[in-house]
Amino acid sequence: MSPDELAVTICIVIAVYSAVRIALERNTLKKLPFLNVVSFAVTGVIAIILPHPLTILAAAAYFVGSTLESNAIASTIAGGPEEKDE
């Protein structure tokens, strides 16, 4: 097994583990850290399976989009979107 394959295997195993933790966790706010781990792992997988300069942009777009989504969900639960809109 080459170093690339080992790294991508570790990433995907951690992503599946975090998805299982999301399924088992009952509290909505405490699911968000596990969702963050899933997006870290998937960003790593995207970068490893296709090494091309545009992949940096795709990985960054995916990561920022997923973070924005978590931010919006947490802010809506905490009391509505009016604080984050300007």
Binding site: P3, L6, A7, V8, I10, C11, I14, Y17, S18, R21, P33, F34, N36, V37, F40, A41, G44, A47, I48
Partner: peptide, 15 residues
Amino acid sequence: DFIAGMVIAILTIQG
């Protein structure tokens, strides 16, 4: 190594 290492590091904090 550092991509997999960072995923492990964030797992220890958040996961």
